[in-house]
Design a protein around this nucleic acid. Structure first.
Lengths: 180, 180
DNA sequence: GTCTATAGATGGATAGAC
DNA sequence: GTCTATCCATCTATAGAC
């Protein structure tokens, strides 16, 4: 919390960016160290193995998720509105962490998939406070999932272009038909 | 179409399975050849490079998608119902191809992401024939996306268990509120 | 059409100097 | 806390026998 950036955080940033830009395969220790302007030896001083680096990223995701859920709980338009509107990749720290971790969720490490599942569950729990009908709440979170995956994982919006603010307005209106 | 399985198809099956089970990193040429009971040299006779192998899988996905869209068009309960109910990973050939290709969509090759986007677009086009309101149609396809990604990519259903038939029934009811 | 052998590059990780 | 040097495994791809 004291130093300007901290090598540790810079390494996590680099790992995250490389995962997003080039996928799991491109996020090698060499590449991460190079992007963070550290040697491989330097990297391995902070994170003793690639697994440890991944673990560091998962913990970052959990931290950011908890913060996001608090923001969502107090959102002016309510949690549903907030969830839908923030399900587009806006290059926020949380978006970056989600995208990066999602790309790791496919190798094997169950711990990683679990972290994403926990994140989803926290959102669903909060939506259920506003929308008591479970099936409706699930449908809403599924729409959020769909937006997120298309945007963050495939880099694809609605038709093939970007998702505009007007698109989101339309979508929020549709969702409101479910909750009213 | 003549031979019992054909080495080519067996190689694509092996590649697909390894991608699903172990992600991009585990799907090496060695592993694919071994699972298909062929030597690496044998593999590279049929597919001259790893890119060619990936291309083969993408073409399989396109073939299966076209077939699925035809089935969906003639589905008894209508396309919307069919789309939602088949958005769960049922280990069908199409599900396998989607899951495998989705795991490749993150490395870089834009061709791969495009194939997934095209698939989505074909579904959306068909839904639009039944549900003229674009925003509603999009919301429906997003729910399908959400189901699919959670199920196929994360191996996660609703809460953390499987998605049951009753869950799907509930969800179809919610979606019908949008279309009626 | 399928095999073995091998080249050449790159991966994660360790050892030890500074 | 950071670096260089190095080890060993594994990756894609090629060459050439059968």
């Amino acid at each position: 919390m004291s130093k300007p950036a901290g090598t540790r955080e810079r390494l996590l940033d680099a790992y995250e960016e490389l995962l997003i830009e080039h996928g799991e395969r491109g996020a090698t220790l060499d590449a991460v160290a190079h992007r963070a302007d550290v040697s491989k030896g330097g990297l391995l001083y902070h994170f003793g193995s690639k697994d440890a680096l991944t673990q560091g990223l998962v913990e970052r995701l959990q931290r950011l998720t908890d913060h996001d859920v608090e923001t969502m709980r107090q959102a002016p338009g309510g949690p549903v509105d907030y969830l839908i509107r923030t399900s587009i990749n806006t290059n926020s720290p949380l978006d970056g962490a989600i995208t990066a971790v999602a790309r790791l969720a496919q190798t094997s490490a169950p711990r990683v998939s679990e972290a994403l599942a926990e994140m989803r569950q926290k959102w669903l729990d909060l939506i259920l406070e506003t929308v008591p009908d479970a099936a409706t709440a699930r449908a809403i979170v599924l729409i959020s999932d769909g937006l997120y995956y298309n945007s963050a994982l495939l880099g694809v919006g609605f038709d093939s272009g970007e998702v505009t603010q007007a698109d989101l307005d339309d979508l929020v209106r549709v969702v409101r038909r479910l909750t009213d």
